[in-house]
Design a binder for these strands. Structure first.
Lengths: 140, 140
DNA sequence: TAAAGGTTTTTGGCGAACCTAACCCGGTGA
DNA sequence: TCACCGGGTTAGGTTCGCCAAAAACCTTTA
């Protein structure tokens, strides 16, 4: 069983909703995903079949353990990539967010790992140079 | 008229074929794109409708000016991203290639620009630290 | 010059993801 | 209590991208 990029996004949206509101509603998923409610229902049915979501119509919606795990992994990539773009490259937050949001579904583990190591290394070994770079970019 | 991610990939494949062989053939596009010939024909028809490709059945296939421009832009992002992953982050080439190949279709202009500036800055301002980082990673 | 062989195209069909319109359900206020 | 309303669901239909099978085409070779 494999999870499509789009399904990963649905799981992530649900995960965020659950964390922020404690409840996951079709309407709110639709808003985040930028689709209409019927599309959400389609997606929920498929995700339920794959055992990633608990879903009975008109009932409360929950991620299963498996679903939550995938969502968390995706979300943590999302957070990290955004941070990297902002803190290291000095990309404006909305753009960093946008780019991270796509890249997170494709980037390989090793690349994420290496990006983390790189950020740490640079921040420790030449913090001043990094600050200099960011300062120049923010001034533009 | 907008070009889908997948269409961009077709254009890029054709661009590479044209540069390498001087001729663009259905069979070769199929190989690069990892699809069967009928899918290529479908794609060519759509791209022709959009004015990105010159295509008459059984005739030679060419990119139009517009098509070539899109392909070139995509390809140059591809090349740069791969280089960044390899030269700055020390990612193994095949993985860098894979990640770049996806990211190139989504990454925003500003991010690419900033990555270029960053690479230049680091290579100039702390080349030794960078070498140190890459050395560590290559030894693992 | 005609048949063989490889390439390209057409046909018909499938799954993913989305939408509109219309229909259900459950809670609220008259 | 019941009509209404907003959110959820179903039905039916679109587009995109892909495929297998079969037909059409072109070139080459016997």
């Amino acid at each position: 069983m494999q999870v499509s990029k789009r399904e990963e996004e649905y799981l992530e949206a649900m995960y965020i909703l659950y964390r922020n509101k404690g409840v996951i509603r079709v309407k709110d998923i639709a808003k985040i995903m930028n689709v209409k409610p019927p599309s959400v229902v389609d997606a929920l049915k498929k995700l339920a079949e794959k055992g990633l979501v608990e879903y009975e119509k008109y009932d409360r919606i929950l991620l299963t353990e498996k679903g939550r795990k995938i969502a968390e992994e995706t979300y943590s990539k999302h957070v990290f990539l955004t941070k990297f773009f902002v803190d290291i490259l000095g990309i404006p937050p909305e753009i960093a967010e946008h780019d991270a949001c796509q890249f997170e579904h494709y980037v390989s583990e090793i690349t994420v790992k290496r990006m983390k190591e790189f950020a740490k290394f640079i921040q420790e070994q030449c913090p001043y140079v990094l600050k200099q770079f960011l300062k120049e970019k923010l001034e533009e």
